[in-house]
């Protein structure tokens, strides 16, 4: 944890057509840390993730990654720089095999040269993927699919991983496994920015957190401070 800012979002506005989904959103992510974005459905969390990864572009404001403005870049250019997004629902390729899904994760030339090493690391993290490597991805269970999505994200050799609700709809025991994997990923020096609806879980796993409501960031800080914050207590823990 060296505390350098790796990602900086400066006052961005994002529109879906004529509907404004993000209003003046700013945040910064420190290298080597886990940062959480917490909020209910429709609060703009996924929009923020898609904007950072280049699927959407801000109409105002900038996004800087390692000091470089990336807000006008295409998704494949942003992935090249070292940001990978695990989209909501995982979105693995159903009619590709498990191994092909992992292979396509290392599509960009930089990651391709480290394919073998990264594949071994993913298999270490999720041994079940090695066992099932020849199966079609659509035949996996929900938890296995999410492991595959996480593994596929890792194959691109990212410096920063964006995870959009990776535990959504999974049994608690599987969620524990995924978060255990997340801690191992972090121990490898990869910075993580994740989106969650589960406030308790987020405040345990992350170092710092941002809380979003209807397209705005309403609260941010270190998780220890946020737990004590009266507004969080009231809104999310009901005390």
């Amino acid at each position: 944890m060296n505390g350098n800012t790796i990602l900086k979002v400066n006052h961005i506005d994002v529109f879906h057509g004529s509907f404004q989904a993000l209003w003046d959103v700013s945040l910064s992510v420190n290298e080597g840390e886990i940062t959480a974005i917490i909020g209910a459905n429709g609060s703009g969390k996924s929009t923020l993730m898609e904007t950072i990864s280049g699927l959407l572009h801000p109409s105002a404001g900038t996004i800087e990654f390692e000091g470089k403005d990336i807000s006008g870049l295409q998704p494949f250019e942003i992935l090249d720089l070292g940001i990978s997004l695990l989209p909501e629902g995982g979105r693995i390729f159903p009619d590709l095999s498990v191994l092909e899904n992992l292979k396509i994760g290392s599509y960009n030339p930089k990651a391709r040269s480290e394919y073998t090493r990264n594949l071994q690391r993913v298999y270490q993290l999720f041994p079940v993927l090695e066992v099932m490597r020849a199966r079609l991805a659509k035949s996996l269970s929900g938890g296995e699919k999410q492991m595959l999505a996480l593994g596929r994200s890792l194959m691109s050799n990212p410096k920063l991983m964006l995870l959009d609700e990776m535990s959504l709809g999974l049994a608690p025991i599987l969620v524990n496994d995924l978060y255990k994997a997340l801690r191992e990923i972090r121990a490898r020096g990869i910075t993580i920015l994740f989106v969650e609806q589960n406030v308790r879980r987020s405040l345990v796993e992350a170092d710092s957190a941002y809380i979003m409501e209807t397209g705005r960031i309403v609260l941010s800080g270190h998780v220890d401070d946020l737990r004590e914050e009266a507004k969080v207590q009231k809104a999310y823990f009901g005390t």
């Binding site: 494949f76 990978s84 979105r91 994760g105």
Partner: peptide, 10 residues
Amino acid sequence: QDWKAAQLMG
């Protein structure tokens, strides 16, 4: 199969 996810794969 999924052009959006494909873009996210670079």
